[in-house]
Each structure stands twice: as structure tokens, then as C-alpha cells.
């Protein structure tokens, strides 16, 4: 914060208050401009480029800037790619539901039932620690867990519960769903715990004194107050799952093709225009999801 003293000669009709306000506003924009410029150049511009290139002409190994809708027609006319949109949406919906089901009770426990601050912090830290392992390592760690000679099959066989290894565990949509749920559920637990932890215990105490059952308290107090946390968590999880490709690439054995995987494979075979089309479709889906979520919750207030 440097002194941005820009004492311009003072026109007599503007009051000192207006001058000060103008100066403060100029200072705010000056401080903000490098960041906004960075975002405009390195985020907005590339995104515009994706839209632009999706209308370029694709030849076998290159693109040229003759505008055409050929890539779009091919994309929308192909059952494989429409299927990929379906898969992306299905995986997103299931993982979102799974993170909520897995995460919410945990958040409830940490935020409401653990009243010891140290233990609360310790549990939250325990949830975050896995993040200090590389994302890709965490994904690949599911292979020895779920494989035919992996931990789960080995244990089940030892226990005599099964005689043949379960093959659906790995290289299937199931493994992708499990992997994503494990990796992303913390993004649900965090915001929800935060919102539940903010509930004044005396409110719940008072409700209990008035004879409300836990069910009623949950429905009337805890659930509504934790909802912004759920929405923030849902935004995080949605954005990350929709843009995913690594988990599917690593755990599905190429059986699950998300839009992300399509982009990666198209880029790999230098089909830039085609990758761009998939990118635009993905952008539209994510925009729709975020817009929906933002209608329910004002992100700026919750942060």
C-alpha cells in the first residue's frame, strides 16, 4: 500500500468528502488492477480462445482459422460424445450425492457433538491431512486397494466371504465413483462443519428445554443453518468433479469417458477444434450448475 497521493488541483465545487471518496476509489482500483489484468489475460482470454477455436476448421493434424460449425455438428451428431455428456452428468450427480451422504453426518458429529475445541480441531486437521499427499498418488492408491489382488479382495477372501475376487471393484465406474468421493468429500465436510459449528449451542439448548426432539431440532434449526455450507461444498465438489479426468483415466481402465477425458485425448491427437467444442460444452454445463447454486446462496456473504 503505497501512498497514492494524487492531489489534483481542487475544483471549488467538489467537497472534500467527494475528493476523499474519489481518491479511495482510485486507490482501490489501482490495487486491484494487476490482479484483474492477470485474470483477464490468462483466464478470460484463453476461455474466449476455446470458444473461438471451436469454430475453426479441423484438418487431420492441424487447425486453421476458417470459421465453420463442422466440429460442432460432428460432436452433436456422435453418440459417443453425447454419451460422454451423459456419463459426466451421471458421475457428477452420484459423486455429489455421495459426498453429501458421507460428509454431512461427519460434519454434524464434528461441528455439533464434539464440543472440545482441541478435539474438534484435531478431527478437522485429520480430514485435511490427506491433502498433503499428491492428488495423483491419492488416486493411484485406490489401485492396490480395489484390485483383484488388492486389499479388499484379499481380506474378503481370507474371511471366506467370497471365493472369487470381485472384479467390478477396479477398472469400472464404481472405482471412479469411490475414488472421487474419497478425494472430494472433504470439500463438503469443511464448509458444513464450519456452518454447524457457528450455531449457538444455547439455541439448541433452548429448543431442547422446550421439549423439541432431536428430529425437530435438526429439521428446524440445524438443517436450515447448515444449508449455506452444503451449497458452498456442493459448488466446490461440482466444479472439481465436472472438470475431472485424471481419476477416470487412472481407475476406470478407459471404461469411463468424461468430457475431461475427451478433451485430453483429442488434444493428444491434435484435434484442437474438437477439444475446444468439448471444452465449450463443459463450460456451459459448469456455468449452469454454478448459476443454479448461486441463485440459492450468495457466495460473497458466506466466504
Amino acid at each position: 500500500m503505497t501512498a497514492l497521493s494524487t492531489d489534483s488541483p481542487m475544483p471549488t465545487e467538489t467537497s472534500p468528502a467527494q475528493l476523499r471518496e474519489r481518491k479511495d476509489r482510485r486507490r482501490a482500483w489501482l490495487l486491484l488492477s494487476p490482479g484483474l489484468l492477470w485474470m483477464a489475460l490468462f483466464m478470460v482470454l484463453p476461455m474466449c480462445m476455446v470458444v473461438y477455436v471451436s469454430f475453426w476448421t479441423q484438418t487431420t493434424f492441424s487447425v486453421n482459422s476458417t470459421l465453420t460449425t463442422a466440429s460442432w455438428e460432428r460432436f452433436l451428431g456422435s453418440a459417443t460424445y453425447l454419451h460422454a455428456i451423459g456419463t459426466t452428468l451421471r458421475v457428477w450427480a452420484i459423486v455429489l450425492a455421495a459426498t453429501l451422504i458421507v460428509g454431512y453426518p461427519v460434519a454434524l458429529y464434528i461441528g455439533l457433538f464434539v464440543r472440545n475445541k482441541t478435539l474438534q480441531t484435531a478431527l478437522l486437521v485429520a480430514c485435511v491431512i490427506p491433502f498433503w499427499t499428491s492428488f495423483l498418488i491419492r488416486v493411484i492408491a485406490w489401485r492396490p486397494m480395489l484390485g483383484t489382488e488388492g486389499a479388499i479382495n484379499t481380506i474378503l477372501m481370507k474371511l471366506g466371504l467370497i471365493h472369487e475376487p470381485l472384479t467390478f471393484l477396479l477398472f469400472s465406474e464404481f472405482s471412479v465413483l469411490v475414488g472421487m468421493t474419497q478425494i472430494y468429500c472433504v470439500f463438503m465436510v469443511g464448509p458444513v462443519t464450519f456452518m454447524i459449528g457457528r450455531i449457538d449451542p444455547s439455541v439448541i439448548e433452548a429448543a431442547r428445554d422446550l421439549g423439541a426432539s432431536f428430529g425437530t431440532i435438526f429439521r428446524r434449526i440445524i438443517l436450515p443453518l447448515s444449508l449455506p455450507g452444503v451449497m458452498v461444498g456442493a459448488i466446490f465438489v461440482s466444479v472439481m468433479v465436472l472438470g475431472e479426468f485424471a481419476t477416470a483415466a487412472s481407475l476406470s481402465g478407459r471404461k469411463v469417458n468424461l468430457l475431461g477425458n475427451i478433451i485430453v485425448s483429442q488434444v493428444g491427437s491434435l484435434k484442437w477444434a474438437f477439444a475446444a467444442v468439448a471444452g465449450v460444452v463443459l463450460t456451459l454445463i459448469i456455468t449452469a450448475v454454478i448459476a443454479l447454486a448461486l441463485r440459492i446462496v450468495d457466495l460473497r456473504k458466506e466466504m
Binding site: S15, P16, A17, Q18, L19, R20
Partner: peptide
Amino acid sequence: AGFEEPDA
């Protein structure tokens, strides 16, 4: 003190 300025 000058933390704010008067309108007039």
C-alpha cells in the same frame, strides 16, 4: 482527525 472528510 481526517479519517473522513466533510461534505461541506
